[in-house]
């Protein structure tokens, strides 16, 4: 790795080379090529890959997932995983190694950090790592830059059509059946799961025959402790709720810094759905029962893991 001093030195060297080449009457692209050729190898490769991206020469899949971008931001996520939140993941082997599957997790913490930490857990600790795709609250796709980053790391708009298409492509898909009600939980009720909507996720699993893996995430509840909310600001910003936390909105953008709680993520035994057949999705009673069964598993494991984790911040 280059230190900051080296980087500045290299930059100065590059500009000097460029200036020299331009003085000799070369055109800008040729001058750039000449001075780039004199850079150290590592830097040159980096410059080349940036240049390639600026030419539009990179791959994104039909959902906008960008694997180069993922490897670029990975060190940041690794830091959050290892140092900031000290995540302990258990039962990762319960995630099917291939084929379609639906991860159904509890949701807390306003911004979808729980989704990114679940991704890192599967990518790092699964014997056959695979990139989960997450259904992310619509609200997140209204935010500039943030929405672009979410797509690039595998988030899609929370639409049942998207979930079905992803599962039919045999992807691993993550959902938060509590939805926005989960992210807006008051701090005092943080381990209490909200209702699982109308069981849409269970319907999708039945329709596509995908097994459901219940996931309990503990720790995301403490990253943005919601002490209260402001209905007036929510109306002004046209958001479902406007959280007041110890840091937000008092510190402005810095208020988005999550607190360093300690996390545990447990992936539970998969619940098989294929035996009901796709017509099971039209059976309201079955859908609601399956949804409630998943909710009970997640609720119970959340409470167990709160105890196993011990104190929230140390």
């Amino acid at each position: 790795m280059l230190g900051p001093g080296d980087a500045v030195g290299t930059g100065v060297e590059f500009m000097r080379g460029l200036r020299g080449a331009l003085d000799q009457g070369l055109e800008l692209p040729a001058a750039l090529a000449r001075s780039a050729a004199d850079l150290p190898r590592g830097v040159r490769d980096r410059v080349r890959s940036v240049a390639r991206r600026l030419d539009g020469n990179y791959q994104e899949d039909e959902w906008g997932f960008d694997s180069e971008f993922v490897s670029l931001v990975e060190p940041g996520f690794d830091f959050l995983y290892d140092v900031w939140w000290r995540v302990k993941a258990v039962g990762v082997e319960n995630v099917p190694a291939h084929g379609r599957a639906l991860l159904a997790a509890n949701h807390a913490g306003i911004l979808p950090w729980d989704a990114t930490m679940m991704s890192i857990a599967v990518m790092r600790e699964h014997p056959l790592p695979r990139q989960p795709r997450f259904l992310v609250l619509n609200l997140a796709f209204d935010l500039p830059w943030f929405s672009v980053a979410i797509r690039k790391v595998g988030g899609v708009v929370a639409s049942p059509y998207n979930a079905i298409r992803l599962l039919e492509q045999d992807q691993l898909v993550g959902v938060f059946p509590e939805g926005v009600k989960g992210t807006g939980k008051p701090y005092g009720e943080r381990y209490q799961l909200q209702r699982f909507g109308r069981g849409g996720f269970a319907e999708i699993a039945l329709r596509t025959g995908a097994p459901i893996v219940p996931v309990a995430v503990v720790g995301s509840e403490e990253i943005y402790p919601k002490l209260g909310e402001s209905p007036l600001l929510a109306r002004l910003m046209s958001t479902p709720f406007f959280p007041l936390t110890p840091l937000f909105p008092w510190l402005g953008p810095l208020g988005a810094i999550p607190l360093p709680s300690k996390w545990r993520i447990e992936f539970c035994e998969p619940i098989e759905t294929a035996s009901y057949g796709p017509e099971g999705a039209d059976d309201r009673a079955l859908v609601l029962e399956l949804s409630e069964r998943v909710r009970e598993v997640v609720q119970q494991r959340v409470l167990e893991n709160v105890v196993k984790r011990g104190p929230a911040f140390v």
Binding site: L28, P29, L54, D55
Partner: peptide, 9 residues
């Protein structure tokens, strides 16, 4: 805009 990777190749 000039093609950057072309220039640096």
């Amino acid at each position: 805009l000039p093609s950057l990777s072309g220039a640096l190749a």
